[in-house]
Design a protein around this nucleic acid. Sequence first.
DNA 1: CCAGACGTTGTT
DNA 2: GTCTGG
DNA 3: CCAGACGTTGTT
DNA 4: GTCTGG
Length: 210
Amino acid sequence: MCGRGALTLSGDRCRRIAGGDGRKTKTRGCERLRTKYNLGPMNYVPVVRTVEESAEALSREVCAMRWGLVPSFAKRAEDFDAFKGGSSTFNARVEGAESSNLWRRLLDRRRCVVLFDGFYEWKANGKSKTPMFIRNRDEYDGHTIPWSTKTDEEPTKMEESADESKIDGPEHAPLFLAGLYDVWHQKDGLGISRALVLLWIGLRKVLTWT
DNA sequence: CCAGACGTTGTT
DNA sequence: GTCTGG
DNA sequence: CCAGACGTTGTT
DNA sequence: GTCTGG
């Protein structure tokens, strides 16, 4: 599926979209986000995830992660870089995720929501291909990712800042894409990098995951 | 037992 | 980390 | 997944 | 055309 995206969202705007309580939702590394209309694997993308402060205290975080998952057990990052002969890990099929050694271990506690303005699908026209941009049709109405996992709960809105949130970003609503992430520690022990994969699944289920 | 994989898209 | 194949 | 490069000489 | 980099 998606191998290209568009991103204009700033870290601050992502934080408002992520919702929660402004005091609880932090950003991390969002200065690495760049406006791009042709965003691909290896670029930084905004990820909304839940952080366990303690057993009882959960907080929400918007974190810039690189697109393309490197599992924590990887010996070399290249082994999970499809463009260097490794496994292709910037997309995942949801149908088989539960029976995959690679994905299964991430399904419970490494879920996230990835924010994109939209993504491209390539339509074949005989010998050439034409990019079709896919995004939400509607304008952004201040909808935020809810805290509750209950599906029957009404979507929450940011009553006070709905107007403000339209100021510094695109008018249309962002896409909420389901993702899995992991944290990979380099063998030399110095660096830590995070990476994610997009997991293709319906929006309704994405929201229940948050 | 150890070694090696662990994935995706799109197609004649 | 965890499973499969040899 | 697409975009972009694709090279040489001669050197503190 | 083919490979690398993002």
